[in-house]
Amino acid sequence: MKASLLRITMLGLVATGRVCCAQQAPPAIAVSTASAAPMVTAPLVADDSLAAAVGTSYLDKTIRGFGRAEILGPDGKTHFVWIPVNLMGFSKYLPFHRHEEDLKRFGREPFSIDVDKVQSIKVNGLYQEHMVLNGKRKHLIAKCLVNGPVELFNYTEMPQPLLAPVAGVAGATVMGTAGLSAPGLSGFPDRQWFLRRPGEELVKVGRGDFVAQMTAYFHDDPELLSALNAGQLHYRDMVKIVQGYNEYRTRPAAR
């Protein structure tokens, strides 16, 4: 069933940063029916590596996979709505329900807001932020996995189901593996990592120049540099890398 999706109309600009606001009643939100777009619903749970990094407690206070979120919009105001709770982040559109009772109504489709109109999200202990590189929005919202001297953000694009034609049945398809490691999937999760030091801009972690980039970024940690140059740490190990560096920087003897 294809449903028309509505966007929140939010105007204005707000500087990049975190804003903590007290709980309050949901403000009135203007909604526009123009330029409706198909909703992109994110997975409700993360793959094992991300779940291992933060646990699964963020799923405790959910209704049908949705949690009550505090969203900072570009109008500088905080809005409270219900959104899908996941570790993957959001790209293009963020689905939402205005009220808890809407989640319990059979067949009620969520509204949708362009992620460019979302500055940050707090939901069930998770902090997510719109990624801005060199002053340009990347049109995705990523999860902050690690806090400390260096923050680590992640956005993960999950593989799509792979459909194969059924022999002898015109127009029929079936979900298959096509020789891939994950049944019914068209590939592996595509992770994007982002780093940030206090007072500095976001930095996207590259794949091709990974060792050189990380060696320069974490140049003051000799143990980490040794592991990187020995090929013991890779792109997929960013949580371990940043956690290890932050531990080194917070040691009493660290300089």
Rank of each mutant, 00 (worst) to 15 (best):
N229W: 12
V19F: 07
T56C: 08
A3Y: 07
P159S: 14
L44E: 07
E151P: 03
R98S: 02
A46H: 05
W82I: 03
L180R: 10
K138E: 11
R251F: 13
K2M: 14
D116N: 15
H97D: 04
G125C: 14
A34L: 12
F80C: 09
G89Q: 05
T56K: 01
M88I: 07
H130F: 08
R255L: 12
H97A: 03
M214N: 07
V203E: 14
V169T: 12
F90L: 09
G125D: 13
K122M: 05
K2C: 06
V242F: 06
T177F: 06
A182H: 10
L5R: 14
A42N: 08
Q119V: 02
V81H: 01
T215L: 12
I63N: 00
L11H: 08
L228E: 09
G17Y: 03
Q24S: 12
A170S: 12
R137P: 07
H97Q: 04
L163R: 12
G65F: 09
Y245S: 06
V81W: 01
H79I: 00
V205E: 01
A30I: 00
N134L: 04
Q160E: 12
P27E: 14
L152N: 00
R249G: 03
V19H: 13
V146Y: 05
V203D: 04
F188L: 15
S32P: 02
I71V: 13
Y58N: 02
R249L: 03
R7W: 06
L59F: 10
L11Q: 15
A172R: 10
P38R: 15
I241T: 05
K104C: 07
G176V: 15
V211H: 03
T156A: 10
S91E: 10
L87F: 02
R64A: 13
S112R: 13
N147Q: 12
R255D: 11
E101M: 06
L5H: 15
G208H: 11
R98L: 15
L103Y: 00
Q160K: 11
A22W: 01
T56G: 04
E157C: 06
L162P: 05
G76I: 05
P110H: 07
H234Y: 13
A216K: 15
T156N: 13
L5N: 13
G135R: 00
I29M: 14
R68E: 08
A34R: 13
I141T: 01
G168D: 05
